[in-house]
Design a protein around this nucleic acid. Structure first.
Lengths: 182, 182
DNA sequence: TCAGACTCTGACCGATCGGACAGTTATCGT
DNA sequence: ACGATAACTGTCCGATCGGTCAGAGTCTGA
């Protein structure tokens, strides 16, 4: 680069994340982001090919972590799958709190939106299965969905110390699943 | 009325509910609804003063039930509050599945939107407190949020028999809260 | 029969959306 | 000193948004 980088790229991401979380993806216009950053709307489209590219880049780290977790769960079953899934998902949901909140604030639009929010959908289903320990019994499936949904919502909403909240999420989710933590 | 009512009013509501659930409130334009109904966009605004009025009327029955539940919880505390809240909320969430799904699909926009989606916010907080049995301990608060969030998401997503799902929601939520059902 | 009320619509409006593009400015290596 | 290139912006665009309005068509009660 010739001109000293002002770090605009990262500032755009920061503002976009903040606004997407607060008002949703559709509820945030490029002009909103530009105003918040303090640059022109055209600058956004210089750094990102389009609006969705901003969302995609914001979600990229979460997606990577999600795929890693997905791979780890692949060989597991039963109690091992459930406990691993719960523990790792808690860690992930806490670390990427804002991204997680952004994600489910736009679940309805996920279908319309491109690939940025489509992988998480199938990932969610595999997580539910892991939570259920592979069981297809209605009671286990419902418990799995409730545990996952509960962690999802609670991690995004609550403002508690990260470590404390993570441990509580894990313990409570395991209780929901009927698996007493060791 | 002079001309035999074509029931357009209700058909608009039905289409709007369907589309709001599928694509979100912001993701659904008046033209989308009009096309789905098979009438002109101007007809929508003949029957409803504006777009938000459609949403408000869709949410009206849920709001009434929510207020009734709210009143019932007012005098209760501890285990009685938790069990009543869980049981009644399960009933409500199941009966108004689609409206509930519509509600949390638009949580991020609730602040922007008018009164239609604002009452539920404070109602949610009171529900959490009831779920927690009045306790302010972090463990109880987290469990309450997870139980509520879990019911919320699971009632909206799953396609199970109503009665079966309702009983499972109640049993699982009580387990999450650490309250063994009688 | 006919005035009036009800239902519905086409045409139009200003605002805003995401995005395209040519041009300006600043800074680099040579 | 001087292109070359990266960073950035003003301006414009077509599409679509929610919403208005004058009127057309249709039925009822007097």
């Amino acid at each position: 680069m010739t001109r000293p980088s002002s770090g605009l790229h990262d500032r755009i991401l920061a503002s976009a994340l903040h606004l997407f979380v607060e008002r949703g993806y559709r509820g945030t216009s490029l002009q909103d982001i530009a105003t918040d950053v303090g640059c022109s709307k055209a600058s956004l489209l210089y750094h990102f090919s389009n609006k969705e590219a901003i969302l995609t880049e914001l979600m990229a780290p979460v997606m990577r972590e999600a795929e890693r977790l997905d791979a780890r769960l692949d060989g597991l079953d039963g109690a091992a799958a459930a406990e691993t899934a719960v523990t790792e998902f808690a860690e992930l949901a806490i670390r990427y709190r804002r991204e997680v909140k952004m994600l489910f604030d736009n679940l309805a639009e996920a279908t319309t939106l491109g690939t940025a929010l489509q992988k998480p959908e199938s990932f969610g289903e595999r997580l539910v299965n892991a939570f259920a320990g592979g069981s297809l019994a209605p009671a286990d499936q419902v418990a799995a969905r409730m545990a996952l949904g509960g962690m999802f919502l609670t991690a995004a909403d609550l403002s508690l110390d990260d470590a404390v909240l993570r441990d509580l999420l894990v313990a409570t989710a395991l209780r929901t699943l009927g698996r007493t933590p060791d």
